[in-house]
């Protein structure tokens, strides 16, 4: 094969790559704002699902010191939630964003100050597959302080393990806020 053929072949692949990058860049320009808006809406909907429709976020504080484990990366955002018409806050919503080599998952765990109890968990972003029994395995045991971390219950996939660790991570943050 001659040199010209190699150059032409490389050039073709390079051009296809460049055209692909342009197309993806264009699509990103078109959609990024809307995706961000949707993300905010999803978080608000998630908080409303946990705390009720009348609740609103008063303060959002991101924990910059993202915790890095061997396999996963977590970032936590703590939302102080208040109910309309009430002066005192009703609780915190902890959003944990976790990612491993297969993609991102983010979830919100809410807990109520007065009862000092976990109220619920919702998934905001899911780029992986995980155990479908996640909610029943985690929401109920959260208050009993006996989260079952066995693979057989939470699933042995990377996604399921990530969710399990994120739930435990969010719980740790919540307990810190409680001052335990």
């Amino acid at each position: 094969m001659d040199k010209k053929h190699y150059i032409l072949t490389s050039l073709t692949l390079g051009l296809i790559g460049a055209a692909s990058a342009l197309l993806v860049g264009g699509a990103n320009l078109l959609t990024s704002e809307r995706i961000k808006e949707n993300e905010v809406k999803k978080i608000n909907d998630g908080i409303a699902t946990i705390f009720g429709k009348e609740s609103k976020v008063e303060k959002a504080e991101s924990k910059e010191d993202a915790k890095l484990s061997k396999e996963y990366k977590y970032t936590n955002t703590i939302y102080t939630v208040v109910k309309n018409g009430e002066d005192s806050y009703s609780g915190y919503a902890i959003r944990t964003l976790g990612s491993n080599m297969y993609g991102k998952i983010s979830l919100i765990i809410g807990y109520e100050e007065s009862s000092k109890a976990f109220l619920g968990l919702t998934i905001v972003t899911n780029e992986q597959t995980y155990a479908s029994t996640l909610v029943e395995n985690y929401i109920n045991p959260l208050n009993n302080d006996d989260i079952d971390v066995e693979d057989v219950k939470c699933g042995a996939t990377y996604g399921a393990k990530l969710v399990r660790d994120m739930v435990l991570e969010a719980k740790e943050v919540a307990l810190e806020l409680w001052g335990k």
Binding site: V24, A27, L30, I35, N38, Q128, T129
Partner: peptide, 25 residues
């Protein structure tokens, strides 16, 4: 193929977010 999938994924996430959440990965 990856280019079109990425574009479709972005458009779904932006304009049909519930479908994006349901289909996920």
């Amino acid at each position: 193929i990856a280019t079109f999938v990425t574009i479709v994924k972005m458009l779904t996430n932006a304009f049909i977010p519930d479908l994006y959440s349901t289909l996920g990965v």
